[in-house]
Design a protein around this nucleic acid. Sequence first.
DNA 1: CTGTTAGCGCCTTCAT
DNA 2: ATGAAGGCGCTAACAG
Lengths: 338, 338
Amino acid sequence: MKKAPTIKEIARMLNLSISTVSRALHNSEDISPATTKRVKEVADELGYEPNQTALFLKSGKTLTLGVILPHLSEAFFSEAISGIEDFASEHNYNVLMGQSHDDTEREKKIVEAMKNHRVDGILVSIAKNTKDFTHFDNLKKYDIPVVFFDRVPDRKEANTVTCKMEAAMQEAVEFLVKNGHTRIAFINGPKDLLATRERLRGYENALKSLHVAMNNQFVVHSDLSPDATYRAMQHLLTLKPGPSAVIAFNDYVALDAMQYARKMNIKINKDISFVSFANLPVWSYMENPPLASVEQFPYRQGQRATEMILDILNAPRTAKQHEKFNKIILEPRLFIHT
Amino acid sequence: MKKAPTIKEIARMLNLSISTVSRALHNSEDISPATTKRVKEVADELGYEPNQTALFLKSGKTLTLGVILPHLSEAFFSEAISGIEDFASEHNYNVLMGQSHDDTEREKKIVEAMKNHRVDGILVSIAKNTKDFTHFDNLKKYDIPVVFFDRVPDRKEANTVTCKMEAAMQEAVEFLVKNGHTRIAFINGPKDLLATRERLRGYENALKSLHVAMNNQFVVHSDLSPDATYRAMQHLLTLKPGPSAVIAFNDYVALDAMQYARKMNIKINKDISFVSFANLPVWSYMENPPLASVEQFPYRQGQRATEMILDILNAPRTAKQHEKFNKIILEPRLFIHT
DNA sequence: CTGTTAGCGCCTTCAT
DNA sequence: ATGAAGGCGCTAACAG
């Protein structure tokens, strides 16, 4: 009762050889229907299931994907996981989870653990301070492909799934300008992130193309912590004239910024309008959500990233050796909250 | 380059036997420091890492826990995962994720997949319609323990981690009564869930002990979908006199109920006060959160459940055979939003 | 100190 | 139509 049944036991019980049992279970042509039937009956009775770990060892494949994210409990990422898990399980892959807590050292440890576990591939959104990618590069030795999504390294040698953030930022700025805003502040994210640079570029380009003067004072940074966002907001509020609109790096920054503004008795979307990135599902429940959010489709990003890595895994070896890097760039969408 | 290095290669390169290499890597006493050093150097050079799948096969343990949840993207569950992952990784366990989408059939498939994967143990919050537990009971044959948390089966033969919901409900009702409410409605959850029955019992007991008359019309149900919650709320609003307070089964039900109320021009916490269960992190950002929420500490529940399963795994076999069932009941806390 | 061997569960030639 | 044997990577007796 206490030990999982094996083909060996089945073989012994029926006085057959292990290989006969194995073949019978695989419906091999050259086993008599009679024995096949007997074998299957006993297998059912014992509740036999093949031991994957044995198959893993033999095949060198684990049918498992590793997923490394900064925080599993953040809505954006948990949506992404959901997409990953759905797509993976449809294709009979399992999903191993790890959270880096935005700490590069933990990220390295997780990569190590997943390497030892011999996952077939790894999906990752990098920690916000990760600048060195050797822990990912080392996976090549183990023939474990990596696909980055959302938070991706800023370099060509990487498989990535991202949203076209520059364009989205342009849309966001245009939206605000069309609504009469010219003093548009921007609380950007940690300077290391590619996403931060992209958004800034989009912000600058949009203002330029719309002939709106850019004020460097209006661009501030947050490391995404509430405190940093409060400080950023505080700074913006000292300016005169202050901004009439604020674009936030993401929804959490927007939440913190709006909260701070409320404390300062500023009327959300009256005194200062807000636009954010990511589009949390809770916005629909809030009385005063941002005017608009750039929807980044985390579920789809997760799906596409999974699709990409399965493609890589199923591609013929030659393709892998060529080290071509795949890039998928999704079109985000400005979602106007009504 | 394309294949992970093995001790075999290292052995060949140094003209040593496989076992010598193995022992050297494990700092065995009886290997000369010299050889140990040589072996480790080569291992480092090759970037050798032991193949866990081989160890799994040998030891029969995978150092992997399976986690099955209704929805990975729901805040409550993603918090729980976070707690699980943190605790598990501290103890060198990996976490395999699966989401049932609240569908018993998918739940069964995931159990099957995890069984084949030979996870060492499984943590589950069951799908809302799951009434039959044979797919979990079958795991006994494979000696895979199961710990249920939050959404647990209503029977003695199960390891569970839960919150003492009856008591929490009493606190919630008392809170409302102290604030002058006597017409307290309750939007309860799906009737199959143990949590639903527990909350109802707490509700009834509280009213009784506080000598507040109970009105059966005030108790309605939602299957947790927005539509069902709207209908429940709609029904409550037809009553005269209507409720002055509403207790919602969980935060999502509260969100939907409050949204519906707002649409009907009801002032939240003025015309009707709300109290909910779970305490989503977003409440702190909302202008009109419920007056209070019963905090269920999902992160801690996840942690405790993980702790419990690791205890079971590390317990001597005899203890397992006795089939004692562990129960942890956490004390929830009524969190008053200020 | 180091090598040889068997075996974890399964699949897969190669024999019979 | 079935059996025997080898091997996936590693550990752990058992020999020297």
